[in-house]
Amino acid sequence: MRPIANTRSAAGIPTGRLAVWWVLASEIVIFGGILASYIMNRLSHDWWADYAANTSTPIGAFNTFVLLTSSLSAVLAHAAAERGDGKLAARRLLYTIAGGGVFLCVKAYEWTMEISHGFTISANGFWSFYYTAAGVHASHVIAGMILMAFVARDAAKNAELHRVELVGIYWHFVDVVWIFLFPLLYIAK
């Protein structure tokens, strides 16, 4: 049985892709709300700069590198899917999943270090935002990895190749969110 709604087009683009854009529009409000709240609090609490000084720029930069690279493999998977090479697309999606795994491992190490130094989610406003923003983002990374595993499984059999692009668009968005989180949490000190 094939899903019927995701490949037809009623709005100029495939309905599945339109659905992804709708999801991202709602995600903009979710992440935008968190980031906007953080920015207004950060601007009105000068001393948060002292707290921010405890985040590790090298770790944040390394994770930015990992996510940018995982986005490259996602878009290369899309390119492979477009020319009908499902096996290559699946392999490249697996590289992206691996990138997500590295990102989460680094994050786990980073949080462990910070929590062991007493910087917990309830330490103060800065750390509350830090764990909330990065935590919501990390949950999106996990969701993307799971979705990508299903898409890769089908793509390896040359089935549902259009989904490679759809899951890629979502992954790039998660990358864009991190592009803004990185300077906000790691650079502005």
């Binding site: 709708w22 529009a25 903009i28 409000v29 935008g32 709300g33 906007a36 920015i39």
Partner: peptide
Amino acid sequence: LLATALVFMLLLF
């Protein structure tokens, strides 16, 4: 569509 979501974020701010 995406710009509308951004505008709502700015409204919140």
